[in-house]
Design a protein around this nucleic acid. Structure first.
Lengths: 224, 224
DNA sequence: AGGATGGTTCGATTGCGGTCGAAACATCCC
DNA sequence: GGGATGTTTCGACCGCAATCGAACCATCCT
């Protein structure tokens, strides 16, 4: 029994499903709040909080307190690299993914992520918004372009610039491994989708189901 | 909530102290028997056997049966790379052990990483190979330059281009936070170092110790 | 065949850690 | 101040997986 760095301690931190999901969500590079991470991980808030303090104690996360919000992020690129390496092995070793059930499929297409839309639809939407130069990539951040500001107000989407939350934020999607749009703008867009009755939230699920006409409307506006 | 690759499953395999010790022991690159691994891990034989079957099922190990001996080894260089990455994080966040022992110092200078050389010497070597344009950086990958191909064959280092493994790969070093050379070329170079008796492997350790003349020879060939 | 050595399976025990509800604490907003 | 929202702490519950001894299987040796 030879002594080395405590690799078991680090690995076991990642080895819990809830914590793994949190870390995966944080792989996008943007810090998230405890509540968001609880949702991503699918656990209650107390449980998430407990996990987060363990991850902090283990040195895998950093914490930035902003008022009553506490943003958790990966501690370093080294940690991110480790997680990438683990993901790599997991993909190589478990190519067989269990057949996704119907609800699972719906979740992949569109679901609620905290207060904004996630899933394939949301990822496609963000792509298009970049294409149309309504949003701009800046390093790991997203900025609202001037053209975007007028565009969204014209659509009746109110952009709350005063809120403490950022207007735009990238949020990593677990189904597609790409980013979708969070922040107040992301939230406002989801509000509109629900308000216009383009889609409804599935009961007791994060899934968001579009009606046929609603889907057309949504695609016309956001995926055109 | 649910995600693609089951990273928690893989990480939790490494997250048990007994299994972590086994994997750490296997990082030396030589396959070991169940009894040896039980000893390394400090657990009874039945316990070790149980762990080993879990690691096998998880795809982290390969098994080679030879008579009544069963030799367990790491399944792939990818798995080894993942473990290196975890070690790196553990080193970075771990309570720095007071005074790194002599063996620790040797490990930092040069050690075996699965089947290739790691440590400061290996990092310096890769730097020089880039400088001399024998290897080329390409995004995150490493390519063998035409000049490099002839150079290594002239040194009597055989490059197996047909193997499924890549010829060159970057592997992150835990002691220095930089990359060293893995892949078939990395393995071939380590082979040469041992074959030429420039260095020998420390018993029961991953450390690689250069002899004075061997060090000179190595530096002349690879660090010139 | 019989004994010795290497490995695995079985069964029972045990303790650690993940989980949540309720309550406490902190911060913001009006 | 008072109410709302975000977050952590507390306490209790429960399940799972790690552990080992003993029995069982496999292979080698003579």
């Amino acid at each position: 029994m030879r002594e080395g760095p405590d690799i078991a301690r680090i690995a076991s931190l990642v080895g819990d499903p809830a914590r793994a999901n949190m870390l995966n969500a944080l792989m996008g590079g943007t810090a998230l709040t405890a509540t968001e991470l609880a949702l991503e991980a699918g656990v209650s808030l107390p449980t998430a909080s407990s996990h987060l303090s363990k991850l902090m104690e283990g040195g895998l996360l950093t914490l930035a307190s902003q008022g009553r919000h506490r943003y958790y992020g990966l501690a370093s690129a080294q940690v991110a690299g480790m997680i990438e390496a683990i993901i790599g092995v997991a993909e190589a070793v478990g190519p067989k993914r269990v057949r996704p059930g119907p609800r699972d499929a719906a979740m992949r297409v569109a679901r609620v992520c905290y207060d904004h839309l996630a899933g394939e639809q949301a990822v496609a939407m963000l792509d298009r918004l970049f294409d149309r130069k309504l949003l701009l990539r800046e390093d790991n951040e997203i900025r609202l372009a001037p053209a975007g500001a007028s565009h969204f107000t014209a659509l009746g989407i109110d952009i709350d610039r005063k809120a403490r939350r950022p207007v735009c934020r990238a949020c990593l999607d677990w189904s597609v491994r790409r980013s979708h749009l969070a922040g107040t703008l992301g939230a406002a867009i989801l509000d509109k989708i629900i308000a216009e009755k383009w889609a409804r939230r599935e009961k007791d699920s994060r899934a968001v189901v579009f009606s046929p006409t609603g889907r057309q409307a949504f695609e016309k506006v956001f995926l055109a």
